[in-house]
Amino acid sequence: MAKNWWKILSVLLLIYTLIAGFLMAVPRLVIVNETVRALYFHVPMWFGMVVMFLVSTIYAVKYLKTPTVKYDILSVEFANTGLVFGLLGIFTGMIWANYTWGSPWHGDPKQNAAAIALLVYLAYFVLRGSVDNQEQRSRLSAVYNIFAFAAMIPLIFIIPRMTSSMHPGNGGNPGFNTYDLDSRMRMVFYPAVVGWILLGIWIATLRIRMRKAEEQILEIEDYA
């Protein structure tokens, strides 16, 4: 139980997010109205994705330094979870855009760049699927993983800010300012981010443990 405190923390933070996210006061803004509450769910998906991909890249580098199956499994499964978060982020964004911008796909630089970033990561799984040799697959995909992360950061955080974008926090003004996010919303938003990230790590670790068990079974079978 002592080892699992962060899982409990994640659940508590998510319950708080749901309750405070819907019941606490939010700024009364035109166009977005009540949908501003979607911020507690849509934005943490992207934060989660970036964290998962960062961890994935760290293990890709570790794999290249010392090639062991363990690092490869960690790298893949964090990328897997990151992709799920990214897809949820882009689809929740489409629902929100349909309401506030008028159409689900607006061709906004932020949307386009996010879609490209996800495609870059999808190619990672295509690459893995297309190489039979396990060592080769691990090494090639680890190298590609570093490239994918290096492409994702400017695509999501830099390019949309250099052009005009309707997405809040873009088009010249970096990050959240007082207009986008007031102190009442921060009280829910930051715990929400931590809660969702911890949930992502929980799901990723479960997948990793299953993959490791699978590897052990294969070892035992080889031995017998």
């Binding site: 899982k7 659940v11 998510l14 929980w202 799901i203 479960l206 443990r209 299953m210 068990a213 052990q216 079974i217 035992i220």
Partner: peptide, 18 residues
């Protein structure tokens, strides 16, 4: 979350057996 916790327990049992 409950479902995830059950999965977690199942994996733990599997690890123990292994």
């Amino acid at each position: 979350i409950g479902y995830l916790a059950l999965l977690d327990r199942k994996v733990s049992k599997l690890e123990k057996r292994l």
